[in-house]
Amino acid sequence: MSERAVPFHCAYCGDTNLWPHEAQHGAWECRDCQRIFSVKMIGQLRPEGVVR
């Protein structure tokens, strides 16, 4: 996930009550399920059958 992207739902409970977690850059806290998480983009998949 880039620094500009923002998660819209909690990765655990699916709620939208998310806030940036101040103690760690790139982390988000869900104030409904009381979890802190971060999301990392690893890469993109190529469509099957496409050779580059």
Results as ranks from 00 to 15, higher is better:
Ala23Ile: 03
Cys10Met: 09
Ala11Asp: 01
Arg4Leu: 13
Pro7His: 01
Pro7Lys: 00
Trp28Gln: 06
Cys13Pro: 03
Gln24Ala: 15
Cys30Leu: 01
Gly49Ile: 04
Gly14Pro: 05
Tyr12Pro: 00
Ser38Phe: 13
Val50Asp: 08
Arg46Leu: 04
Ala27Thr: 03
Glu22Asp: 13
Ala23Ser: 12
Arg52Trp: 10
Arg35Ser: 13
Gly26Gln: 02
His9Thr: 09
Leu18Thr: 00
Leu18Glu: 00
Ile42Lys: 15
Cys10Gln: 10
Val39Pro: 00
Phe37Thr: 02
Pro20Phe: 12
Ala27Ile: 02
Gly26Cys: 05
Asn17Ala: 11
Tyr12Phe: 13
Met1Asn: 10
Glu29Ala: 15
Val51Ile: 14
Cys10Asn: 15
Leu45Val: 08
Asp32Thr: 12
Pro20Asp: 08
Cys30Gly: 04
Cys13Phe: 08
Glu22Gly: 09
Tyr12Leu: 09
Cys10His: 02
Ile36Arg: 15
Thr16Arg: 12
Glu48Met: 06
Arg46Phe: 09
Asn17Pro: 00
Leu45Gln: 11
Ile36Lys: 12
Trp19Pro: 01
Ile36Thr: 15
His25Arg: 14
Pro47Glu: 10
Cys30Ala: 10
Ile42Met: 15
Glu48Gln: 11
Met1Glu: 04
Arg52Ser: 10
Ala5Ile: 07
Arg31Gly: 11
Met41Asn: 12
Glu48Val: 08
Arg46Met: 06
Val39Asn: 02
Val50Asn: 06
Val6Met: 09
Gly26Asn: 05
Ile36Tyr: 03
Glu48Thr: 04
Gln44Asp: 07
Lys40Met: 02
Arg4Ala: 10
Cys10Arg: 03
Phe37Val: 07
Arg31Ile: 13
Glu3Trp: 02
Arg4Gly: 14
Ala27Val: 06
Gly14Ser: 06
Pro20Trp: 06
Val51Ser: 13
Val51Lys: 12
Trp28Thr: 05
Asp32Glu: 09
Ser2Leu: 13
Ser2Val: 05
Leu45Lys: 09
Pro7Val: 00
Pro7Asn: 02
Tyr12Val: 10
Arg4Val: 01
Ala27Ser: 06
Cys10Phe: 00
Val50Ser: 07
Asp15Ala: 11
Asp32Ser: 12
Cys13Val: 07
Gly14Leu: 05
His21Glu: 11
Thr16Leu: 04
Val6Tyr: 01
Arg4Gln: 13
Val6Lys: 08
Arg35His: 12
Gly43Ile: 03
Val39Asp: 01
Gln44Cys: 06
Leu45Ala: 15
Glu29Val: 15
His21Gly: 03
Ala23Gln: 13
Val6Leu: 02
Ile42Glu: 15
Ile42Arg: 14
Ala27Phe: 12
Arg35Val: 15
Leu18Ile: 01
Ser2Cys: 05
Ile36His: 03
His9Pro: 00
Arg46Cys: 05
Val50Pro: 00
His9Asp: 06
Tyr12Glu: 07
Gln34Trp: 13
Pro47Thr: 08
